[in-house]
Design a protein around this nucleic acid. Structure first.
Lengths: 117, 117
DNA sequence: CGGGGTGCTTACCAAAAGGTGGGTACTGCA
DNA sequence: TGCAGTACCCACCTTTTGGTAAGCACCCCG
């Protein structure tokens, strides 16, 4: 990621900056649905994501203050991810977009990803 | 652009697919604000965009059925761009995101692009 | 006749994004 | 003993994206 954080043309620009990235909106979505998720749970919830990408996108979301990362010093290691208040509000803003996208999928007859067992 | 058009994980994924691209959301915004714009007007309204990028993004928005392109067989040539009904509804969905982004800019104190005269 | 404006196209190049496949250190289970 | 699971990190490579610069065909203005 280019780590811009401004200057921006407008709010849209600023929002797209933090949300662009192949998996970010999907991660936000997952976290909003489940409240709290561990690394491996997220990975299983996002079929096709590589571990590297998942780490990278989570780190960026964390840097941007949208996701909270909590490490439990246990063995085996446990790390929990949750949305911050800003993450929650972003998700609310994204909901309208999600609805529009679902409508578009119906229009163009797009298929859904087939989940591997 | 990768020209995916599915399969998608969910609506968010589908929406991000058509809206991702450095200038797309900004073009949509410009068209929503002004109703109808000519090529050169858009270029001037988006400081920093190159002609190549503008053409490319407009073509993709057109292919995705969000923007209407009307050519007038005149000399000098005139081409007008407007939002389709789907473009309009996408913009409405994006509005929430724009608001969130503006709020974020205030929070992190991001600067706005300085427009060259 | 030169310069600017119209709306593009093409070729080339650099940067960014993302994927692959390896390694880590430790434990629990069979 | 050997494999799976935890949550990563690293180096390498390819694909995608976006930028730069040029050209085109025509016109109007001075």
């Amino acid at each position: 990621m280019a780590a811009r954080r401004g200057p921006y043309f407008c709010g849209m620009d600023a929002a797209m900056d933090v949300v662009s990235g192949k998996w970010k909106s999907l991660i936000l979505w997952e976290l909003a649905e489940h409240g709290v998720r561990r690394f491996a749970q997220l990975r299983r919830g996002l079929p096709g994501v590589s571990e590297k990408m998942l780490v990278q996108q989570l780190r960026e979301l964390e840097e941007d203050g949208l996701v909270r990362r909590e490490v439990f010093p246990e063995v085996p290691p446990r790390v929990e991810y949750t949305l911050t208040e800003h993450g929650v509000s972003l998700n609310e803003a994204l909901a309208a977009l999600g609805e529009w996208g679902a409508e578009r999928m119906r229009r163009i007859g797009a298929e859904k990803v087939v989940y591997a067992s």
